[in-house]
Structure formats: structure tokens, C-alpha cells
Design a protein around this nucleic acid. Sequence first.
DNA 1: GAGTTTCCTTGACCAAGGTCAATTTTAGGC
DNA 2: GCCTAAAATTGACCTTGGTCAAGGAAACTC
Lengths: 237, 237
Amino acid sequence: MDHSLRHIALFKACEKDFFEKLESHAQTQTHPKGKVLFVHGDAAERFYFIKSGWVKLFRETLDGAQAVVDILPAGHIFGETSIFEDDLYPYSAEIVEPTEIISLPLSDLKTEIENNNKLALAMLSSMARYRRQQDKEIEHRSLQNASQRIGCFLLRLARQNETGAVSIHLPYDKTLVASRLGMQPETFSRALAKLRDKTGIRIKGATIEMDSLDQLVSYSCAACSSEFPCKDLQAAE
Amino acid sequence: MDHSLRHIALFKACEKDFFEKLESHAQTQTHPKGKVLFVHGDAAERFYFIKSGWVKLFRETLDGAQAVVDILPAGHIFGETSIFEDDLYPYSAEIVEPTEIISLPLSDLKTEIENNNKLALAMLSSMARYRRQQDKEIEHRSLQNASQRIGCFLLRLARQNETGAVSIHLPYDKTLVASRLGMQPETFSRALAKLRDKTGIRIKGATIEMDSLDQLVSYSCAACSSEFPCKDLQAAE
DNA sequence: GAGTTTCCTTGACCAAGGTCAATTTTAGGC
DNA sequence: GCCTAAAATTGACCTTGGTCAAGGAAACTC
């Protein structure tokens, strides 16, 4: 799959001029694991497009704890929402594995949104979708236990209309998955073992296999307000 | 304070025609406590404006648990985000005390957003603000303990630039505050007592008094990634 | 103002997840 | 392949918040 700015859903209503302007101001860089692109509260002048690799968005409290906002794969943009508020980044961004990033001026995006109503509408759709995901995230944190959250995470990685045997590969470290799900690595490890015992999945390192998704669905989706398959995933395609 | 559609921040860029159209299709109703306006998954045809009272937005899982999405006071609208997605309500809405509600067709709003870019931009701002609040909510659920969350809730009710003695009145039942904060009523009760012991606040029924906000700030905001005073509150004014 | 209902608090107990420490496993570098 | 560092697992223990049950306080009805 080709990850290019011109193909992301958000920009489907944009014309050549816009892309040319954007591309003329683009900077491409390859960053190593651990590199921090910006921190929460920095003045926001550019937004970012992930060409390859993974990026972690997070925030830190005064007393040193860390909350992971999201972990984004290639094809996603981030840092773009600052233009609607105070022009400060609402989270920090860190590279979690070697990643190729294109940075672009927020001013170009802002100008286009102000003049291209279709882009504004596309942005509204994308924010509405994100909003629902966040609402669901909050729900899951309070109503699902650790094993159910892992099950849900796995289901969202799978092709949900698949009926037969399924093999799912974790996209990044278990430690990182744990933080993404708001739990400790030790808890993740134990909860995954419990999920195995409850549903009969087979764990082989970072790969998880099962005869069908059914067991996982009935275990995890019981503590969710939405139906399986998850609608928000289809919408995002 | 007068709560009218014409004065809400979201519609500040709208003209007389729009309001007249909207008002000609408006239905005003007074609902008693417990009344359910719509449930999660219903076809969304109208959005709602709260003229007076309080409304709870929530979702229910298959196995019967409930997650409170938000509890909204007069002056707020809800049910408006469905237009950007599948035209289904993403939560259920229930009246929590006698409330005067104006319902309005989503189609009018949709038409206006598609034609009035300023409204689209205002909507983007409002969604961006909401998004940050939700991000913070997720952070708080995983990094703050029950007492800290209550302290944070109280601080958000107070005028945050106040320096002297402060008196805060809970806007609704403690049971409802508990659910809003994602905890059980028993936990709320115990955690509030713990907060009293830690910070020296004085609890008199639904009213909470203190000599200054400082104690609460240093107790609760230590486990938050944002500075006190909370910026998102100022932006909302 | 008595009685009922709803809300709030408290106690005893339990379960889930966090913490700390010790291994074991895996992945990279040379 | 060997060595090292990082990641993952496991055990023992503890803290937090949930559950169930009982009692007390406040609010509403008549």
C-alpha cells in the first residue's frame, strides 16, 4: 500500500493546487526510535504525515505518570487539530520505531480549510469518527476488564468479516500495546493468559491464532455497547 | 442567564434566515425526570437544545452495565454529531430532572453547515474542544484515583481565578456525579471523605466549602497533564 | 407532622489490577 | 554461534475500588 498525502481520505476533496503548495513546503525526515518530535504545550506550527513506521502520542502528568493518547501507523496525520484552538500541541509525539515523517505547515492547512468547505466537512467527519472512538475508549476503560480490552484490541486488528481460522500479529511491542490499553506490562501478560484460557486462542510470541473470531467476540463484546463487527472500522476504510 | 439558541457560541456566525427556519421547525417540550428522549442506535432526525434542566447521555452494554458519556446543563445542544456519520444516535439521552427541551431537525443544520463555511469552522472548533476534554477524561480515568477525580470535578465547577474562600454546590445528585466520574456511589462517598481529610475541605450536604482552591489544586492537579487553571474552561466561555 | 421513598453513608468482604523483584525468553550486534 | 540488552513472564504482596447488606438522613407526599 502506498502511503501518500494525496490519497488520504481527509484530502479527497482537495485540488492539485493545494497539494502542490503543501508539497513545496514539505520536509521529509527519517527518525530513529525514541525521537521526540514535539512535546505537549509546544507552539504548533506544523502537522505531520506518517509515511512509514509508528508514532506514539502521549501526555505526562506533573508527578511523572504517562497516558498514551494513541499509537498511529503509516498513512495517518497528527498534530493537525491545534489550528482550531490555541495553536499548542495537545500531546507529545514520540517515534516508536524507525519512521519516515513528512512535516507540513499548519498555516497551509488552515487557509485551505477556511476556503474549501468540502475539506472542512471532511475534517468534521473525521473528527466525528474520532470522537466516537474516544467515547468508546472511555466506556471500555470503565466497563471492560483487562482481558476483554485485549480481546477487543485483537478483534480490531482482524478482518472482522472473516469466518474461518484467523491469525493476528501484534503491530508493536507488548509493552506498548499494554500502555495503549492503559495497563501495566505485567497485567497485560497475565490478562492475555487469562484470555487464552477463556477463549482458546493460541499465543505464539507476537502472533495470535484462533479457529474463528466467535469466542473472542462473545467474551469481549459482551462488555461493549456496540455490535460486532465494529462500524467505525468500516467507515474508516 | 438567558438560554436561547440564538446566543450559543456555535451559531455565532449564523444569520437571521437560519434561525427563523430553525425556529419554524422547533418543538418545545417539558419532560419529567426519567424520560428517555432517544436510545443509542435510533435513527437521528432531530437534535436538541436544553432550555433549562439537565440531561444525561449514556450507553449500555450487552451485559447491562451503563457508561455515562456526559451530563449536560441548560444552554447545550446534543445529538448533533450524527449528521457526519451514519445518522444514528451514538448514545442514549435521559432527562435527570424536569427539563425544557427544544428539538430541531438535523436536516436544517446539515444544509446550513454545507453552505455556511463559518458554521463549519465553528463546529470544528467546538469538536476540537470536546476532543481535548475527552482525551483528558481518558487520561484522568487511568491516572487519577477516585478522590483526585472528585477534586478535579469540584475545581471545574469553581471560578478558577478566585483566590479567597470558595463555596461549591454540586449541580446534581451525588449518585449522578459518581456515575459521571465513572465510580460507584459508595466509592464516591468514601473518596469524598478521603478528599476532605487530605485537603481540609468542609462538606455540608451538596455544598462544599474551603478557604482556598490551593489545597484541592495541589492534590488533584498533580495527577493531570495540564496546568491549573484549566484552559479549556476559559475557551468555552 | 407522620410516613414513605429516595439518597447517602458505613461496614465487611472480595476481586482486579498495580508494584517490586526475580527469572526466562527473545532479538540484535558482532 | 555467542554475548548482551531489552522484553516478557511469573510470583508474592498490596492498594484500590466494587459488591452486598444494613442503617441513617433528607426530601416529598398527603
